[in-house]
Design a protein around this nucleic acid. Structure first.
Lengths: 227, 227
DNA sequence: CGAGCCGTGACATCCGAGTGACACTCCCGC
DNA sequence: GCGGGAGTGTCACTCGGATGTCACGGCTCG
């Protein structure tokens, strides 16, 4: 599913946009300031950003300038009450892909959102995890440890994604299953052990003495990026 | 250099646009009708199309509908005096990437042109794909492997084009269908397998042990130009 | 109506998720 | 320290789903 972030300090408007985007079948969320939005994008890259220009502290232009240094910059539609041509040109040349003037027609905005998302392949979410001497491409289902390449299955990727989202935090097997397998799958808890085994063979120097995927006796497993 | 075609029946306006686009460093030309424009695009693919909606015989909407069947569809900015929201939505959903209402500010239009062309570098619609001992002419629907010639169907070409645009990246069957077949075609996912089979017979030394079109179990297929 | 193309169904084959068995390790009470 | 039971490491095996492959039917176009 495609993800969208709305950066807008007018909360009722933001909520309305998010609701409508969700109704379009998109994974939408909002942030009330540029700083908050950028922090969110750094953690959880989005495919598209709806950006207001008139924000409290950090302006929309500042946000545009900061986007290229993100791990996965989103496409951007600027939504602004500023209708001077100079503002439009400035925003577009700062990297925005489209510019919609307030007040806008909702159906036009949604059509422009569809136009921007069209042709984007797959999900652009965070597609790399890097720690120690290991690099993981979540999009390509591949893992490299010192130039040695391994293939990852769908579930291995989901588990790595989960562990990376909770570094140094013990995760119970039941929690791992719920997050990586989904709400409606109920494999045995020993299945988790098997996947930990497979992952250790791919990311540990000595799989018998793991330093990254550590057993928390009686509680589950813990991911230590630092080792 | 990036190429632009302007389809506009108001000749003075068309000339003005072409001059300004050339001043921007682009290779611009114009056509006075939809038919003429499409013919031009078929001979000489462009990177971007500026399209008027109110054309004499064939309307701009008709042109939009005809674009996908071109060998190399351009990006499209619709430039129109029709300002009803319904027209905007319709044009965007027919595949336009942006919509500018007349009368427009020239600097804004040029900024939108730059925004559309940005990031297109390297994606310029090549009409040849070359890898290993295989050469493909996308325009001629032909493929050569060591002097052995094969004919390609329309969909085979689309799939090759898609794979070539995403080397070494696993593509899901659903994505392949969406990109190669189009948004409104829903063949079975097994259809993709059949086309992979046909392509393998044409590009692999040993189709039973493919090195270029590799299966990613559970994910789809991956194109490895290097083998 | 013949040829080529697209799409589906059927069958064989392959792969990996999940299970269970067995050995080993850890914690706890003695 | 020293069992013992619970928890974990590890592996071989199974089974369902995914894929390879082919053959057939519908379709369009000349």
């Amino acid at each position: 599913m495609k993800t969208i972030l709305v950066i807008e300090d007018d909360l009722p408007l933001a909520r309305g946009l998010v609701d409508n985007l969700r109704f379009e079948g998109l994974l939408a969320s909002s942030a009330a300031s540029g700083e908050e939005g950028l922090a969110r994008l750094r953690e959880q890259p989005a495919d598209l950003l709806l950006l207001d220009l008139m924000l409290p502290a950090m302006s929309g232009f500042d946000v545009l300038r900061a986007l290229p240094s993100l791990p996965a910059p989103p496409r951007v539609i600027v939504v602004s009450a500023r209708d001077a041509e100079a503002d439009v040109v400035r925003a577009l040349d700062l990297g925005a892909h489209d510019y919609v003037k307030k007040p806008f027609g909702l159906s036009e905005l949604l059509a422009r959102v569809r136009a921007q998302l069209r042709g984007l392949l797959g999900e652009t979410q965070a597609d790399e995890i890097v720690f120690a001497d290991v690099r993981v491409s979540l999009k390509r289902f591949r893992l490299w440890k010192r130039k040695k390449e391994s293939l990852l299955s769908h579930l291995e990727v989901e588990m790595l994604r989960l562990f990376a989202a909770h570094p140094d935090e013990p995760l119970k097997r039941s929690e791992i299953i719920r997050q990586a397998w989904g709400e409606d799958a109920y494999p045995s808890e020993r299945t988790v052990d098997n996947f930990v085994l497979k992952l250790r063979k791919k990311i540990e120097d000595d799989p018998a003495r793991p330093r990254h995927l550590v057993t928390e006796f009686g509680h589950g497993y813990r991911f230590c990026p630092a080792g």
